[in-house]
Amino acid sequence: MDKIVIEHLSLNYSDGTESLKDVSLRIPANQITVLFGPAGGGKSTLLRCINRLNDLADVTMLSGRVLLNGVDVLDPHTNVTELRRRVGMVFSRPVPLPLSIYQNITYGLEIAGERRKARLDEAVERALRQVVLWDEVSDRLQDPAHALSGGQQQRLCIARVLALQPEVILLDEPTSALDPVSTFKIETTLRELRSELTIVLAPHSTQQAARIADTAAFFLAGELVEMQEGEKLFVNPKDPRTQDYIQGRFG
């Protein structure tokens, strides 16, 4: 089943960059779909279309459709608040909000109107356990989040998104600022989360793409070059450009 269907998506920023050119692809549910390719390929731009975060950017041209469960999220009537609760996002640099560990996780829920302490406590514990952070921080939930290590911060950022029980999470180079051990922990967490939700990830390296992709899509200068199962794509790419990139001939 396809969770997200993208049809003929094109996007220009105000500086004239054509960041996406007629991109169409299907993102299957309960899988890790990896968008990879050289810098400036449009991966981040595509991710930000799915949760409408590009609303904040200077976008001058946007056409096409992004269907989530068959509903076009680009529609102006979309309730973006609800959309962003269902489609969580993790950024390349861990950005804990300037609040306590506990408040970081309850932030989204409180915004959504959840006030019951028991529910919040429960959500905090569940989310922290999902990212295997509970044992490390359960005794200091009221400490400021910035006191955590970089890897812990990034797991907190994932937990913060999970607390809202989203259907999809988007991760933009989530481990680019982390050490190998933290990276490994996060990748493991993501694999386990597959059963509950759909994951779309832009990795910071081809190695990570190859390690984690159920499905992989190769982006080059705003175009989708090819997309297929990860195991096939990295072993046997169809397009010569993909092959060149994977073998490290450019980018």
Partner: peptide, 16 residues
Amino acid sequence: MTSSNPSLESTRPPAR
């Protein structure tokens, strides 16, 4: 609010 599954097309909630 999170328990149900409100439509993405729902218009502005009253808090707005």
